[in-house]
């Protein structure tokens, strides 16, 4: 039984992605729909999630990241802290403050958590990020502040308290982070 057959049998149209076996399972894009549901190919614990073209796979992965941060029991370091770091990075990207640096951090945390975590939850907690980054990367990249390096520390946001105290909000009270963008605008 292929994924495509299941989709046809349940009347799914305009399918963007299929998540097999829950959040820690595998995320498939259209090109892989001819793979078979079988222990040797796509083992499944019974879960089969279908996402159509209207869905945003970044938001799907971010939801899974929040799920794992909430579910981590906290026993071992890589999972207890790692799931929270991954959730924070996904939230940062969602707020359009991310950069390619943050995507590299997701891959780095995936490599650490996959080998070092105590149980399967931590070992597989980065799977939704890993799969969607490999198969739906534009969903991430269109949210990035810049495709180049961006510091984790937001200088302009750090000035907000000083602005509030002095009652100023003029241009000189803001840190100009992207003079080149403003020149274009």
């Amino acid at each position: 039984m292929t994924v495509r057959q299941v989709l046809a049998d349940c009347g799914a149209t305009d399918t963007l992605a299929v998540q097999i076996s829950g959040p820690s399972g595998i995320c498939l894009a259209e090109a892989e729909f001819d793979r078979k549901i079988a222990f040797e190919d796509l083992p499944t614990a019974g879960a089969f999630m279908i996402f159509d073209e209207t869905r945003d796979m970044f938001e799907v992965a971010r939801n899974f990241a929040h799920f794992f941060a909430h579910e981590s029991c906290g026993f071992c370091t890589p999972c207890r802290v790692g799931t929270t770091l991954v959730r924070n990075i996904m939230d940062k990207i969602a707020k359009n403050h991310g950069s390619p640096y943050d995507i590299n951090e997701l891959f780095k945390l995936h490599r650490l958590m996959q080998g070092a975590s105590h149980c399967g939850l931590g070992n597989s907690a980065c799977n939704p990020m890993f799969d969607t980054l490999n198969k739906f990367r534009p969903a991430y990249e269109r949210r990035l502040m810049s495709l180049n390096y961006e510091p984790a520390f937001d200088l302009d946001a750090a000035l907000s308290q000083a602005r509030q105290m002095t009652g100023r909000d003029d241009a000189a009270a803001h840190f100009d982070e992207h003079p080149e963008n403003e020149a274009e605008a």
């Binding site: 207890r80 490599r111 070092a116």
Partner: peptide, 13 residues
């Protein structure tokens, strides 16, 4: 390298 990251996790949590 992995151990360094684990240590950093301790320091930030």
């Amino acid at each position: 390298d992995k151990r360094r990251t684990l240590l950093q996790m301790f320091f930030v949590e």
